[in-house]
Design a binder for these strands. Structure first.
Lengths: 339, 339
DNA sequence: GGGTGGGGATCGGGGAGCAAG
DNA sequence: ACTTGCTCCCCGATCCCCACC
């Protein structure tokens, strides 16, 4: 059912188009590249010939001579969670709008060797830039002092870094979460953090700590999860072993799902017994029991920022300025209440 | 801080490597392509020269002459939900293991024009095959009778189709869900389906209907959602307007989250008043209240099947056989109970 | 002088043919 | 027989120079 088109696999070249259109290959090239000095009628004939032959210019040949692949690379680590997946998607769409194709390398872990080999594979594919969507600080370090030969844009919330970087301000988001609880009169606010080594987790943890210190509220040991609901559940159980806190700031909505489960299992009500604030605003957040108060992140905007940065570098080659981090937005629902 | 390596942008070619290694470019090429008849000592010198010059073969030049880009295309539609995102990820990893780079085109909608232009962009990039990760039947039809020139593998659950296709058996999964409820003694089993036009939704709907018919249980009008928790919540409200059913089979866990919310809001308990079965087994499912009984799909295995099919075609060029659809697995938790 | 054609170099490798160590 | 080098063409575009109308 799949006729080979009869051409025995041979595809049309620019010369075939020229012959059919009755012009020179030179003129076809002018049309292809939108160069001036082509009479409309001539252009028309060329366009028709292209359609008739179903001619597709060889990207390889063009890339060879122009030294531009019209392609960028994307390295993503971790699980395909809602946030990163949305950001990756947005980078993809923005890139396409700008005429770039995106080659994606997704890695389960963030080991330096696999990161490097992924990047090398991208370099071999002649990508013009690489976008990193990573959360692990170690993943970023894999690129430290490594001259790739192409610009690198990191989507990462490291608080100090010389590399070009776009981010959402996790620190201020966390402060907003804790402020909200403080404003409600809570003092014993515990924290379920993300995994050690996660830049987002560290920034949120720092925001939580500093807010408590400034408010002179008691500082406790944070619990650790790995972003998964399972880990949130287990952290919740460990947390309850220390007694019932007035409020918990959870570093992600997914972990909050697990925490809510642990609280319910222990016979505790939210928000009557415990107030809970999450982070991310995943689509499920509004429908948990109770609906979760959380911090919304603009993952799509983040991806767009990343691609905008890439385009800026590709054009000017200078300008190490990057956009201000976006601010998460507090979404009030029903999982918190005054003391 | 980004020294240009001193080479003024010029990169090493195969001839540079040959000169440094003191051999001919011919020999370098032999080494690069693992051809026989190269003395180990010579190979060694070449490898060293490559490392010293940080030489990277030009993929463009190689593709030009070999007519192989070592690249495959991936078109994905819809939101970056857990299932599709996991599958896409798995395709990426399997491809990398096989030495292929993946160019991804993600589309929010599934309109024919954007699908076609995405595919054309992939063709221009000279991909050797295209993988479709789509749910909308219309998206599949955009490729009907269109001779792309490259093999196409669809990850889609259409029940009748001549294209090469890998899938999870949605129909049988739905039957397992309904059987479970039937076995518990339920007779009035309602269904919250996915959006019209979704192949997965149609298959699950069909499984629900046929199971009920065979069991001579009452058939009702299914509700419709769009996979989102919000839509599940609204469908739940509409459903309750008809009265309280004994059980509900929801076409996705995400929508089940919304349904649980609607039921709780109405003062109904799960499973005491209503039994609920979901579909997908998202990571949150085990921690909802109550923990959700659902059908687990092997999204990663699905992605691997897709890539395996691609490789099979790329090698053989024949063999329109494809793997048997995988079966979803019933995961029993606490959202169902006997009448 | 705007529109067009012809010829040829070039990009960076793959590979054939043949000679030679 | 095995290993290696040389020379030259090829892939399919871009682009430059120059001529022509």
């Amino acid at each position: 059912m799949s006729g080979n088109g009869g051409d025995r696999g041979r595809v049309a070249t620019i010369f075939d188009v020229a012959r059919v259109a009755g012009v020179s290959h030179q003129t076809v090239s002018r049309v292809l590249n939108d160069l001036p000095n082509v009479r409309p009628a001539t252009r028309e004939r060329v366009v028709e010939a292209i359609a008739e032959l179903r001619y597709v210019p060889s990207q390889a040949a063009r890339a060879l001579v122009t030294r531009r692949s019209r392609t960028i690379g994307l390295v993503a680590t971790g699980l395909p969670d809602f946030g990163p997946a949305s950001t990756v998607r947005a980078v993809n769409e923005s890139a396409r709008d700008a005429g770039y194709a995106v080659i994606t390398m997704s890695l389960a872990g963030a080991e330096v060797p696999s990161l490097r080999s992924a990047a090398e594979m991208l370099i071999r594919q002649a990508v013009e830039a690489i976008v990193l969507v990573v959360d692990e600080r170690a993943a970023l370090r894999a690129f430290d002092g490594w001259e790739l030969g192409v610009p690198l844009v990191a989507v990462a919330s490291a608080n100090r870094d010389r590399a070009l970087r776009v981010a959402i301000d996790q620190y201020r988001g966390a402060r907003a979460a804790v402020s909200h609880l403080l404003d409600l009169g809570h003092r014993d606010i515990r924290h379920i953090a993300g995994p050690a080594g996660s830049m987002d987790a560290e920034e949120r943890l720092r925001g939580w700590q500093e807010s408590l210190v400034e408010a002179e509220a008691p500082l406790t040991e944070p619990l650790r999860g790995d972003w998964s609901p399972d880990s949130g559940f287990r952290a919740g159980q460990r947390l309850l072993a220390d007694g019932v806190p007035g409020a918990v700031f959870v570093a992600s909505d997914q972990m909050a799902v697990g925490l809510l489960h642990a609280l319910a299992t222990a016979g505790l009500r939210v928000p009557e017994d415990v107030s809970v604030v999450g982070f991310d605003d995943i689509p499920e957040a509004a429908h948990l029991s109770p609906p979760l108060t959380t911090l919304r992140q603009d993952f799509v905007g983040l991806g767009q920022d990343a691609m905008a940065a890439v385009l800026a570098i590709l054009q000017d080659d200078q300008s190490p300025r990057y956009p201000e981090p976006r601010l998460p937005q507090l979404i009030l629902r029903s999982s918190t209440r005054p003391v």
